[in-house]
Structure formats: C-alpha cells, structure tokens
C-alpha cells in the first residue's frame, strides 16, 4: 500500500464485513524531542474473532474457509508498522464468547522518523469512501496531534441533523464531509 490511509480503509472494510454498527478510527500522533510516533486504532463492535482465528490472522497463508475474507489486509498493516520498528496488536472478542461486548480492535504503532515509514496520505478520501460505501454504519473519526484534535467526525451527529430521509452518502452530504474535514486540517495547521 502506498499510503497508510489505504491500509486504514482496508481494515475498516473488515469491520463493516464483521457487521459492525459502529467503527471507530483513531489516529494519534506524538511529536516531541524524544518521540515521533503515529498510532492508528481501528475498533468495532462487529462479530469479532475466536482465539483460533486471532492467532493466525496475520499469517497471509492461513486460509481456511471461515477466515478467507481476512486475506492480506492485516499482514500488510503489520509489515508497514514493523518495518518502522513499530508493532501491531489485535484484541478481539467473538460473539460466541461475549454476547454483548464483542468486537475487534486493531492497533498499529509507527516510528515516523524511520526511513521505511509510509506516509499517512489522503485520510480524508478514506473517511469519505467508507461513508459513501456504508451509509448505514456509524463511523467515529478522531485525529489528534500531541493530544490536540486536528479533525473529528462522528456520523451519528450528522445523522441526527439529516434525519431518516437523507442518506449519508448523498452527494451533497459527502461533499460537505470532505470539505469539513479538509478545512479542519487546514485550521489545525494554521493554529
């Protein structure tokens, strides 16, 4: 993948396929004299994975029928993180184990100073693409830099304003989301 934002799109698509109703994407950057890191967390309330699946999920050649949908997505993200000296962690509770509190959380940590760090790229495009394809799913997107929020979008709030009749993937709404996020980032930089 050329940009980490593409990995994020890919992993978040897994969440949607796991029938999540809420998908949370957090990007957390820390920049100071000691540390220059980026942490991506994608968590959902989908059907989750059993321990057996979880053990093998980052192995690209592990393909049984039940897990074939996982494919190369997680191995790609793992590689992108590890090649910067970072790491990937996955926590998951399957629906069978946890009736109410199920879901998966994928966390990837990157060292931005490393020469093999893949840039984040067009994250706005990723958020817009997810909402376009899955207007019924709720997405929470929060990007912070040194604990300050540079961009925040919660589709639940938009849905409240728009009501039932106007889907989130109407062209007008999608355009608004794109402009809103782009402007948020611009403002954060200007500050």
């Amino acid at each position: 993948m050329k940009e980490l934002s593409l990995n994020i799109l890919d992993i978040a698509e897994n969440s949607v396929k796991a029938k999540a109703t809420v998908v949370k994407i957090l990007i957390d950057e820390t920049e100071n004299e000691k540390e220059n890191t980026l942490k991506i967390t994608i968590s959902d309330n989908g059907c989750g994975m059993t321990e057996e699946v979880l053990k093998n999920v980052t192995d690209p050649f592990y393909t049984t029928r039940t897990t074939r949908k996982v494919g190369l997505g997680l191995p790609f993200l793992k590689l992108a993180a590890e090649q910067t000296g970072g790491n990937l962690k996955i926590v998951s509770k399957s629906k069978e184990e946890e009736k109410t509190n199920h879901g998966t959380a994928v966390t990837a940590c990157f060292n931005k100073n490393h020469i093999d760090f893949t840039p984040l790229g067009d994250i706005v495009s990723t958020v817009v693409t997810l909402i376009q394809g899955h207007p019924e799913t709720d997405f929470i997107f929060i990007h912070t830099k040194n604990k300050k929020e540079s961009a925040v979008l919660k589709t639940e709030e938009l849905r409240k304003i728009l009501g039932k009749d106007i889907p989130l993937n109407s062209f007008e709404v999608i355009t608004w989301i794109k402009d809103f996020l782009t402007e948020s980032y611009k403002e954060a930089v200007d500050k």
């Binding site: 593409l6 494919g71 190369l72 790609f76 067009d122 495009s125 693409t129 376009q132 062209f171």
Partner: peptide, 19 residues
C-alpha cells in the same frame, strides 16, 4: 471492487471519480 487487492491497486480514486 474495494477489497485489499482493489485498494492496493488504486480503487479509491477510481470510486471517488465515479461518484
């Protein structure tokens, strides 16, 4: 097609251009 293979090959801008 927006699976890993599609995304890695450049499906995101294709989709957004169609929209």
């Amino acid at each position: 097609g927006m699976a890993t293979c599609g995304i890695a090959a450049g499906a995101r801008p294709v989709l957004n251009t169609f929209v």
